[in-house]
Design a protein around this nucleic acid. Structure first.
Lengths: 203, 203
DNA sequence: GTCTATATGGGGATAGAC
DNA sequence: GTCTATCCCCATATAGAC
C-alpha cells in the first residue's frame, strides 16, 4: 500500500501529519500550563502559529486533542514501567528499576505527565474508561512485584495495595513541582526514588 | 466593641457570616469537583441555593473565593504539621507523626486538600506569593527534622531536600485518588504512610 | 488546508428594584 | 441582602471563500 503512493500524496500526507503533531505539541504546552479547562482553542492555535479554525481540520474537538495526548502518554509510561519490569528478575532490583524509570519518565516528560495525571476528569466517560484500563495494568505490575518480593522473603510490606499506590506517588507527584532546567535532574530523581522505594519495601 | 453591639446587629452579622461560609463550602465542592477554571460562579451560587448575583455581595471575585479557601487550608495543614512536630521530640518518632498527621488531614479534608495542592496557579501572583510562604515553612519543618535525625545518628538520608519532598508527596498525592467512604480510611493512611516514612529515612 | 467571518452559547460581574 | 435582568466579553465550533 505505502509503495503505491505517489510523491504528491506522500508530501501532502506528511505535511498534514506534521501539522497534526504541531497542534498536539502546542496543546501539550497549553494544557500543562493552564489546565484543560483553562486553555482556549485560540491559545492552542496561536502556539502552533495557526488560526483557530485550522485546529478543527486536524482534530474534531478540544477533548479529542486531550484524549490523544493522554492516550499516548499513558501508553508510553506503561511501556517504561514494563521495560523496567522485564529488565530485572529480582523483586527488590525490579522495584528500584521500575520506580526509578517511572520517575525519570515523569521528569523528562513532565508536561505530558502533568496532563496524564491531572486531566482524567476532563475526558469523556468513554475515553476515561479506556485510559483507566492502562492505569490498572500499571498498578497490577507494581502489586505483582511486591507479592513476588514477599514470597521471596526479601520484602516486608504492611499493605500491598496501599504501598503500591505510595510507590507510584513518589513518581507521579513530582509533576506537581518539578521544573525542567532546575538543579534537580531526571537521573537524580530516578536514583533517589529508586533508593527510597527499596527502603520502603525491603524486609 | 462586641459588648456594645445590639441584638439586631449581631443577628444581621451572624446571618451574613453564615451565608459567606455557605458560599465558601459550595465553592470547595465545586472547585474540588471541576477545578477552578472549570467552575462557574453560577455553579457555586446554585450549590449554595442562591442567585449568581448574591455571590458578589459576600466575595468580590471568584478568585477571592479560591484565595480564602486556599489560605485557610494552608494554615490548617501547617498547624497539623506543627502540632505533630511539637508532640514528638525524637526525630524518627517525629517524622512518623508528621507524615501520618499530614496524610490524615489530606484524607479527612480531601476536597480542600485538592484545591490547596492543585490550584496554586489559579491564584493572582500576590495571593500565590503569600501562600508560598506557608508552603516554605512546611518544607523547612520536614527538612529540619531530617537534619536532626542525621545529627542524632538515627537517620541516613541520600538527599535531604529531595527526601523531604518525597515524604510530603506521600500525603499530598493521595488527594488525587482518595475518595471518602471507600475501604481506605484516613487513620489507615496515617499509619501506613507514617511507617513508610520511617523506613525511608531510618539509618 | 488555510484563512476571515460568524453562529451560538455561556462566562464573570454589575444595575437597580424590592 | 436578595432577586431578575443584563452588560460585555470570550468560548467552541462552523461556513464559505481562496
Amino acid at each position: 500500500m505505502l509503495s503505491t503512493m505517489t510523491t504528491e500524496q506522500a508530501t501532502g500526507r506528511d505535511r498534514s501529519s506534521r501539522t497534526r503533531e504541531r497542534l498536539l505539541d502546542a496543546a501539550v504546552e497549553a494544557f500543562a500550563a493552564s489546565g484543560f479547562a483553562g486553555t482556549t482553542t485560540r491559545d492552542i492555535a496561536s502556539r502552533a502559529g495557526m488560526s483557530p479554525a485550522a485546529v478543527y481540520v486536524h482534530h474534531a474537538t478540544k477533548e479529542d486533542l486531550l484524549f490523544e495526548i493522554s492516550r499516548r502518554g499513558h501508553h508510553a509510561s506503561l511501556e517504561v514501567l514494563q521495560t523496567a519490569f522485564d529488565a530485572e528478575p529480582d523483586p527488590l532490583a525490579r522495584i528500584r528499576a521500575m520506580v526509578g524509570a517511572f520517575s525519570r519518565w515523569h521528569a523528562e516528560t513532565s508536561r505530558v505527565g502533568r496532563i496524564v495525571q491531572y486531566e482524567l476528569n476532563a475526558l469523556t466517560p468513554e475515553h476515561r474508561a479506556e485510559i483507566a484500563e492502562t492505569r490498572r495494568t500499571m498498578e497490577r505490575l507494581v502489586q505483582r512485584t511486591l507479592e513476588d518480593g514477599i514470597a521471596a522473603g526479601t520484602m516486608r510490606i504492611p499493605d500491598v495495595k496501599g504501598t503500591a499506590l505510595a510507590l507510584l506517588s513518589l513518581s507521579i507527584d513530582l509533576v506537581r513541582w518539578y521544573r525542567p532546567g532546575g538543579p534537580i535532574t531526571p537521573d537524580g530523581l530516578a536514583e533517589l526514588h529508586g533508593e527510597l522505594a527499596v527502603r520502603m519495601v525491603a524486609a
